[in-house]
Amino acid sequence: MKIPPQEAARIAALARLQLPEDKLALFAGQFEDILGYMDQLGEVDTTGVEPMYSPAEHATVFRGDAAEKRVRRDDVLANAPETDGTFFVVPKIV
């Protein structure tokens, strides 16, 4: 498994990370080792095996259909980097 630096840059962009080139090069080499190790799963015959995504399978939990006010707006906004007192404020989008 070869991971060229431009592939590492593409993954970083997907993950919303902006990393310097030396770090991308370091990570790319480490990813080769790690993904190479993971490739040994190819040895296992999994024909017909249902994937197991969680130990809590088939868990559908219903709660009572009752409205509940659990949090206050002020509390939710208290940790935000920027608000106008009512909403979160973010930099321009386009």
């Binding site: 962009a13 919303r16 990370l17 902006q18 939710v76 940790n79 935000a80 980097p81 920027e82 979160f88 973010v90 930099p91 321009k92 989008i93």
Partner: peptide, 20 residues
Amino acid sequence: DGVRYGVRDAGAEELVDMYA
């Protein structure tokens, strides 16, 4: 992502750049 909690980078002028 720097929106609801945690540390936001102050230098960004655009949303996706702010996330990254």
